[in-house]
C-alpha cells in the first residue's frame, strides 16, 4: 500500500496522456471508495430491515459482527468486551475475556518487532445502548525501535537510540448505539511516555477519537475513524476508513488512515486477520 497522503501534492506540472490519467490517485481512490460504499449501502438495505445485529440468526455469519476493539493503534477502542470465555486471535490483537468483566490482550505483531506489550480492559457499564470500559495498556520500545520494521519501506518518526521508552496509554471508551445500524465508539486517552529522557522528554499527552460503525449487512461493517492527539497542544489528527468482515470464526478488517500534520500527510494501511475461538 502506498504510504503517503499527498495533501501537499506537487501541483500540476504537466499534461497527462488522458483525462483519467490527469485525475490524481487520491481522487481515483475516493471515487472507488464512494462507488463501493454506495453499492454496499443499497444492497444492504433489505438486510438491515430484517437483521437484528447481535443474534446469530442460524446462519454461518459470525457472532462477532460488531467491533469489540479498536483498529487504529493506541488511540481508539470500544466500550464493549468479548463475550464471556471468548478468545480472539487476530493479527492486531490476541484477546481473551476472563471472569469479572475483564478482558486481557496483547498486540502479537509488536512482539515480532521486539516491542512487548499488554493490555487490560474492564467493563464499567453495560446497557444495550451504551457501554463503557476502561483500558490500560503498556508498550515497551527497546532502544532503536525505529529499526525494527520488517520491510525497509516504512520509517518511524520516533527514534530512541539512547533509551528504552515505556508507553502506558490509559483510556476511557464508550460505545453508543443510537440506531440499530449505527454505533459510535468514542475514546478519551492519556498517553504517558516514560524513559531516561536521553532521547526526548517524559510527558503525557491526551487524545480523543471516534470510530463510527455501520453494520450494513450481516457480518459486514463499514467504519470511519478519526482522532485528535495533543488537543490544546496539537500534535496530529487522523482520519480513516475500514471494512470489517466476520464470517463464522473468521474475521478480517482492512482499512487506511491518514495522519495529518503541518508537514504533510502520512498514509497508513491497516489490516487485521484472525479468528474467534
Amino acid at each position: 500500500m502506498h504510504g503517503g497522503g499527498g495533501v501537499a501534492a506537487t501541483g500540476r506540472v504537466g499534461g497527462g496522456a488522458s483525462c483519467w490519467r490527469g485525475v490524481s490517485r487520491a481522487t481515483r481512490l475516493r471515487l472507488l471508495a464512494a462507488a463501493v460504499g454506495a453499492l454496499l449501502f443499497f444492497t444492504a438495505r433489505p438486510c438491515l430491515a430484517a437483521s437484528e445485529p447481535g443474534s446469530s440468526g442460524g446462519s454461518s455469519w459470525g457472532r462477532h459482527r460488531l467491533a469489540t476493539s479498536g483498529f487504529y493503534p493506541i488511540w481508539e477502542d470500544t466500550g464493549s468486551l468479548l463475550e464471556p470465555a471468548d478468545i480472539q486471535l487476530a493479527s492486531n490483537g490476541f484477546r481473551v475475556r476472563i471472569p469479572g468483566d475483564v478482558q486481557l490482550g496483547l498486540q502479537p505483531t509488536y512482539y515480532l518487532h521486539r516491542a512487548p506489550n499488554l493490555e487490560a480492559k474492564v467493563s464499567i457499564l453495560k446497557r444495550a445502548e451504551l457501554q463503557l470500559a476502561l483500558r490500560q495498556s503498556v508498550i515497551v520500545l527497546f532502544r532503536n525501535a525505529q529499526d525494527r520494521m520488517i520491510t525497509p519501506v516504512y520509517a518511524s518518526r520516533l527514534t530512541n537510540p539512547n533509551s528504552n521508552v515505556v508507553l502506558a496509554p490509559a483510556s476511557l471508551h464508550a460505545t453508543w448505539r443510537p440506531f440499530s445500524f449505527l454505533l459510535v465508539h468514542g475514546s478519551a486517552t492519556v498517553l504517558p511516555m516514560l524513559s531516561n529522557e536521553k532521547d526526548f522528554e517524559n510527558r503525557a499527552v491526551g487524545g480523543l477519537s471516534a470510530m463510527v460503525e455501520l453494520p450494513v449487512v450481516r457480518g459486514h461493517s463499514l467504519l470511519l475513524h478519526g482522532g485528535e492527539v495533543g488537543l490544546w497542544d496539537h500534535d496530529f489528527a487522523y482520519l480513516g476508513a475500514s471494512y470489517r468482515l466476520n464470517y463464522a470464526w473468521f474475521m478480517m478488517q482492512l482499512g487506511f488512515a491518514y495522519r495529518l500534520r503541518p508537514e504533510g500527510a502520512q498514509g497508513s494501511p491497516l489490516l487485521s486477520v484472525g479468528a474467534y475461538l
Binding site: I74, Q146, M149, Y154, L191, D199, S268
Partner: peptide
C-alpha cells in the same frame, strides 16, 4: 509492518 508503522508514528514525542 502496518500496525507497527502506525503505532510508531502516532506517539507525540
Amino acid at each position: 509492518d502496518w500496525d507497527y508503522y502506525a503505532m510508531m508514528n502516532s506517539v507525540p514525542i
